[in-house]
């Protein structure tokens, strides 16, 4: 039988903020090529977990292993260079630069590494990177806006551009923090279509999401987080039928 291939392993992670036990005993295995959703009520610790994975927060104990490499203790840029990209809850973009440059920068990071002193080469001569970025923008339907300043885009477009910034690096693992938060129904559906499209490319994804419609249209596997603990783990159908999940969502925390 085919053995599942775990690419990301969050092992026994605890995170305390003073007296608050934000994450307790988290053990999470994400399989290669799958879309793994983490859901849970507000304050369950979803964003904390994502921040621990990406290196923004250090866990109090435990570690995160990506494809045999321990991520814990590494800097965000080192983690990115290993092949992990992240979309933020509020888009983190280069607001003062053009859309095209926003997408070219991550492509250069992928090609040239974390630091290069290429100050005498003209940016205009980077035709390969430029073409790659334009192709990526076409994929997310934003080619027509490439010369605009990123800061002047609508919220939905900023998010799509941020997604393009991550995808152009061809990451092995993509982390998405509420990719449709604050979007209209229409924008949400376009984003779902976009995410489905990249699903077929075999990229592993971890999604944190509030919107059940999004979760059930995309996820292969769901982990439910409540009060810092994983209370359920399984396929969408298993999770949907789990009484503990229904209690966490409908009975208590809200």
């Amino acid at each position: 039988m085919e053995k599942s291939n775990v690419v990301l392993h969050v092992a026994d992670v605890h995170k305390r903020f003073g007296g608050l036990h934000a994450l307790a005993d988290i053990d999470l295995q994400v399989e290669e090529g799958k879309t793994h959703a983490i859901i849970g009520p507000n304050g369950a610790g979803k964003s904390t977990l994502l921040n621990v994975i990406i290196g923004k927060l250090a866990p109090t104990s435990g570690q995160v292993v990506f494809d045999g490499t321990v991520l814990t203790g590494r800097k965000p840029y080192q983690i990115n260079q290993l092949g992990i990209a992240r979309v933020f809850q509020t888009p983190e973009i280069f607001a003062d630069l053009s859309v095209l440059h926003n997408v070219m920068i991550p492509a250069l990071a992928k090609r040239d590494g974390m630091f290069t002193l290429n100050m005498l080469r003209a940016l205009d001569s980077e035709t390969g990177i430029r073409a790659e970025a334009e192709h990526m923008l076409e994929d997310v339907g934003m080619l027509g806006r490439r010369e605009m300043l990123a800061g002047s885009l609508s919220r939905g477009d900023k998010r799509r551009m941020e997604l393009a910034m991550c995808l152009i690096q061809h990451p092995r693992l993509l982390l998405l923090d509420e990719p449709t938060a604050g979007m209209s129904r229409h924008d949400t559906n376009t984003t779902i279509e976009l995410l489905k499209k990249i699903k077929s490319r075999g990229m592993t994804k971890v999604i944190i999401e509030h919107d059940m419609h999004v979760v059930f249209s995309l996820a292969d596997k769901i982990s439910v987080l409540a009060q810092g603990r994983i209370i359920a783990d399984g396929s969408p159908d298993e999770v949907r039928g789990n009484p503990k999940v229904q209690e966490a969502y409908l009975g208590g925390a809200h």
Binding site: P76, E92, F94, L123
Partner: peptide, 24 residues
């Protein structure tokens, strides 16, 4: 006008994004 210059402008614009994009 170089890629290096664009990185400097990007640092001014959003240092967090630079780090999560793989730049030291």
């Amino acid at each position: 006008g170089s890629p290096f210059g664009m990185m400097l402008k990007a640092i001014k614009s959003n240092q967090t994004r630079m780090q999560f994009t793989g730049f030291n």
